[in-house]
């Protein structure tokens, strides 16, 4: 049986700030759809991507209430990708840079994420088929 491909992503951008964080999640989702394992090292603002207290809101400019607006929260996208990985027998191992979390008060992240350090990123790199760093600009 062929060994499962493992991809590592290092993310730096905060949610709601650039197109890069959504693009990174699209890459993550595609890898999971292919049945790959994916490691994520969330660094700097990216630790807010799975922040548990994100909440949808209504949008008066759009003329829609909270249900109609269906405002996307990246934490839900991450959870959905993790669920799809599990359904395919793959895994998303999402590590939150602990110091970055502390700086930002972002300790409350969704289940399936864990606190770590750059040492985890190095371990990811050593164990992965390939690694992609998506830096902030």
């Amino acid at each position: 049986m062929a060994e499962r491909t493992t991809l590592t992503l290092a993310l730096m951008d905060a949610p709601y700030e650039s197109a890069r964080s959504t693009t990174a999640l699209r890459l993550l989702a595609l890898a999971v759809r292919r049945g790959w394992n994916v490691n994520v090292f969330a660094y700097e603002g990216a630790v807010n991507i799975p922040f548990a207290k994100q909440a949808p809101h209504p949008n008066a400019v759009h003329g829609r209430d909270v249900a109609q607006e269906a405002h996307p929260n990246p934490k839900d996208w991450v959870a959905a990708v993790m669920a799809e990985a599990a359904s395919r027998g793959a895994k998303v191992d999402w590590v939150q840079c602990g110091l970055c979390v502390d700086e930002r008060g972002a300790a409350e992240s969704i289940p399936g994420t864990r606190r770590g350090s750059p040492a985890d990123f190095l371990k990811f790199v050593e164990e992965s088929t390939n690694t992609l760093v998506i830096p902030t600009r």
Binding site: E17, S18, A19, S21, N59, V61, H62, H71, P72
Partner: peptide, 22 residues
């Protein structure tokens, strides 16, 4: 352009402009 427009479902400055105009 297209700064977090997928997450926000709009452009934030256009949104603010609509609000101010309103």
């Amino acid at each position: 352009a297209y700064r977090a427009t997928l997450e926000e479902q709009d452009d934030t400055i256009l949104w603010l402009s609509h609000t101010l105009k309103g």
